[in-house]
Simulated assay, not measured.
Amino acid sequence: MAREECKALLDGLNKTTACYHHLVLTVGGSADSQNLRQELQKTRQKAQELAVSTCARLTAVLRDRGLAADERAEFERLWVAFSGCLDLLEADMRRALELGAAFPLHAPRRPLVRTGVAGASSGVAARALSTRSLRLEAEGDFDVADLRELEREVLQVGEMIDNMEMKVNVPRWTVQARQAAGAELLSTVSAGPSSVVSVEERGGGCDPRKALAAILFGAVLLAAVALAVCVAKLS
């Protein structure tokens, strides 16, 4: 029961972390917006909630001295997968912090493309575009507050990783995989000769009558081509 619960929590954490990773890649791009920053905030908070629950559940199980050897090996594999997922989450949060600081939403920016248009009309258009609505002014503080909160959350995730290593010491190089390395390749290679033999057995030998018909058809075709060439030269 505990193993299934830990697997479900870890699966949810993996999906949430992957979603957060894809969202972080769009920060500073053409799809960057207020909605994206809010979605990033919700996703990382959900990931941290799942991480706290998964960490507490796995820690309680692995600190049980009466746990069987096979069960402990399975939970150690889950622990290694969880720690790797948490490392990726921390790296993406640091990346989001750097990109958010480099590309603020409501700060004045220099246009990347200069059209060269000048005159009274361009001045009026520039003044119209520089006018900020009340809604944007109200939301202008969200960017700064979110970056401060994200900075605190990055430190919290780092502390969680340190506490994990202190409570449960599971070196990653000591955890054994369920199957040998390259098992998929070996199974594919072993299946290759049998498939070739089965194809040869199903194919059978060549039919002499079909071969003779093919030879006769080729000879007639060559004769027709030669006759056409001779007629063309005589004409």
Rank of each mutant, 00 (worst) to 15 (best):
G66Q: 08
E90D: 15
E201R: 15
L186I: 03
R63C: 12
V220L: 12
L58G: 00
G12C: 01
R114L: 06
D11C: 04
T115S: 09
Y20P: 00
L129Y: 06
V154M: 07
T174A: 08
A177V: 01
R152P: 10
A191H: 10
R127V: 02
W79M: 01
E137Y: 12
G100V: 01
R63I: 02
D70K: 12
L25H: 08
L97M: 15
A101P: 11
F217E: 06
L150A: 01
V61K: 02
R132F: 10
V170Q: 02
T174H: 13
V52G: 15
R95E: 14
R77M: 03
C206W: 08
K233A: 12
A219C: 09
A125Y: 10
D141S: 12
W79N: 01
V196E: 10
A51P: 13
K15Y: 12
C85D: 07
G116R: 09
R110L: 05
F142H: 03
G203A: 11
E39H: 03
M160W: 10
K46Q: 15
E184S: 06
E76I: 01
A51G: 03
R95H: 08
N14Y: 14
D146H: 05
F142Y: 11
G182L: 14
L88V: 08
D87Y: 09
H106S: 05
S33I: 00
S190T: 09
L186F: 13
A68P: 05
P104W: 08
H22G: 04
C19F: 15
E49M: 08
E149M: 09
A228H: 13
F103G: 00
K233L: 13
V170M: 03
G29K: 00
A118Q: 07
P171F: 14
I161P: 05
Q176A: 10
L150I: 00
A8R: 04
K233Q: 07
